[in-house]
């Protein structure tokens, strides 16, 4: 089933177009990677998909059930968050915002949902700890738990492993693969890391001077795919 379909989409901000001519669809259960050089518009595209930015041209069709808060989002960390005094539980709970409308306080069901997701991400033991004291990997898992509180069907992740050490990176990929396989959550990920593309992706969207959209196998044989692998210091896919 197609969850998101983009037709001749151009994205940008402040009246500037960053990437244009994007045609692709994201199906439920996909592990979807967005690749491309720095500044090619990957984050802008993700923000447009999330409706944080209006599309410059073209349109985005989303499946109905995604319109009322089925999307989870893991943004890149902002400098504000680095020294933010908030406990892990407070942050994960804030992922339940979307379904609350104007009710001012969290219900028991939402609190239970937060507990479940903290358990799933292995941060339950840290729930009273302060976010700023955690390691990079732990912080990402907290933000992932928060995103899961909002996501029922699809997760959008903006460079989830940037700045993580190899161990934490491995853990993060493990968690995402599990969510994708076991919970059947669609993963849409921006990544600079060739591992994500090689080992996990089903389909790849490459943004750049030449765009590509298709399965991983085809991508790795295409021009942009070879370039991507080359820039990552790897050999071309045999």
């Amino acid at each position: 089933m197609i969850q998101i379909r983009c037709r001749d989409l151009s994205v940008g901000y402040d009246g500037k177009t960053v990437a244009s001519g994007l045609n692709f669809e994201i199906c439920s259960g996909d592990y979807f990677c967005i690749a491309g050089q720095n500044g090619s518009g990957k984050t802008t595209l993700m923000k447009t998909l999330l409706r944080l930015l209006p599309p410059v041209k073209g349109n985005i069709l989303t499946e109905k059930s995604l319109n009322d808060g089925g999307i989870g989002y893991l943004p890149q960390q902002t400098p504000v968050q680095k020294d933010f005094p908030a406990s892990v539980r407070e942050i994960v709970l804030s992922g339940c915002q979307g379904m609350r409308g104007l009710r001012p306080f969290y219900s028991r069901i939402e609190k239970a949902l937060a507990e479940v997701n903290m358990e799933k991400m292995g941060v339950h033991g840290l729930s009273e700890r302060c976010y700023r004291e955690l390691s990079g990997g732990q912080q990402q898992r907290v933000l992932l738990a928060r995103a899961l509180c909002a996501a029922k069907k699809i997760l959008l992740l903006d460079e989830p492993v940037s700045g993580l050490d190899p161990g934490a990176t491995e853990e993060m990929y493990g968690l995402l693969a599990e969510l994708n396989k076991k919970d059947d959550i669609t993963i849409v990920m921006i990544s600079h890391d060739r591992r994500a593309v090689l080992d996990y992706a089903d389909r790849v969207l490459h943004i750049g001077s030449v765009c590509f959209f298709g399965t991983k196998e085809k991508y790795l044989q295409s021009g942009p795919g070879r370039e991507f692998l080359y820039s990552q210091g790897g050999k071309a896919y045999e």
């Binding site: 923000k47 943004p75 804030s94 915002q97």
Partner: peptide, 15 residues
Amino acid sequence: FAVTFDENFARALGE
């Protein structure tokens, strides 16, 4: 709290 901690995330949730 949500808007202070992460404005983009809150906005993505429809706030």
